[in-house]
């Protein structure tokens, strides 16, 4: 993943233990979905965080909102922590004047995922929507 920090899009294919990542600034759409319990979350997400950091430093706020969608199945606690670091990078972007929304998508009856979303909603100062879905 050495060239991630200079590419315009960030696309990582999913594995059994790592999520699909599609960050497309031109489409103003950032997506993380699937399972996330890598052996070392920092090792997996470190370049991802660095990519977002580099991109956001270059980014000039635009009127159109950026949407960050997260739809995870199973994720471990170290992923939970890295996600917060990621959301905080988006928080900085939002503080710079970029309209932005994080959408936490979860199965409607999955109250565990709803609770996890509520924790993030309380921890970051950025519009954070909980989005229950049926399937």
């Amino acid at each position: 993943m050495s060239d991630l920090t200079t590419s315009e899009k960030l696309i990582i294919e999913p594995t059994f233990t790592t999520p699909e990542i599609k960050f497309d600034p031109q489409a103003r759409h950032f997506f993380i979905g699937g399972n996330s319990y890598p052996e070392n979350s920092l090792k997996f997400y470190g370049p991802v965080l660095q990519w977002v950091q580099n991109w956001s430093e270059r980014h000039v706020p635009i009127p159109e909102p950026i949407v960050v969608e997260v739809r995870l199945e199973y994720f471990n606690t170290s992923t939970a922590k890295v996600l917060l670091d990621l959301f905080r990078l988006f928080e900085v972007l939002h503080e710079k004047g970029q309209a932005l929304q994080i959408r936490w998508i979860y199965l409607e009856e999955d109250t565990e995922m709803e609770d996890a979303g509520l924790d993030y909603q309380a921890a970051v100062r950025v519009p954070f929507e909980l989005v229950p879905v049926n399937e």
Partner: peptide
Amino acid sequence: HYSTLTEGSYSDSGGAGLGLIQVLFK
């Protein structure tokens, strides 16, 4: 659980120090 999630640091193996807390919590 919340303070370790929001303020804790990572271990050398990338762990968040939350595993057993999470199991007890759940």
